[in-house]
Amino acid sequence: MSLWEYANPKRFMQISAAVLPWVAGFGGVCLAVGLIWGFFGTPEDYRQGATVKIMYLHVPAALLAINGWLMMLAASLIWLIRRHHVSALAARAAAPVGLTMTVIALVTGAIWGQPMWGTWWVWDPRLTSFLILGLFYLGYIALWEAIDDADTAADLTSVLCLVGSVFAILSRYAVLFWNQGLHQGASLSLDKEENVADVFYFPLLLCIAGFVLIFLALVLYRTRTEIRLRRLQALMARDRLL
């Protein structure tokens, strides 16, 4: 059986129906444990005090804001190349979730930045890049909403997603060039020696796992809704035709 058989809407509906409660439940548990551990079970940072705990929301949200866009990019490519409707609908379903993640990252960042930098907002490259990413999400969603014909909308938004990705990267470097910024380096990375201290590390990983699973659950749920909507539209169109 090929991987692409999951792209059949019917099969997708069956499998996602079975998987969805587990993903959502497991994600909820991970997030709850991670947050409780993070908020009550870890010490305060010697420099940042209690504000460091915003990290448990800020870092996973920021991570998913970017990876949400990457997922949309992959799904758009699959749609353009293989014409699987589920793929286009998954990209559509992911956009508002990704936008929400971007907003969470920006808001928690502002709350974190206020005591640290003494201001709610600075035009720091990372913050600015996220703001631009948010604009890309907005434009993408608006284009989906504006076009009536579903296949046309899928094609055009996919093209926009590809072009937007290139420009998002360009903007990232342009913004770096424009202002060097205050934001600390990445909190997590695989190839760096310097990560956050271990006490923060494990609850943070749990929170990230929780966020990822909940993101997946939301995207699956929204994709299922989109598929049902498309099915309904197709049936209605057929009714008009006959």
Binding site: A142, G164, S171
Partner: peptide, 10 residues
């Protein structure tokens, strides 16, 4: 405008 403005950033 909404689509083009973010593309104008760089």
């Amino acid at each position: 405008s909404l689509l083009v403005l973010p593309l104008y950033v760089p």
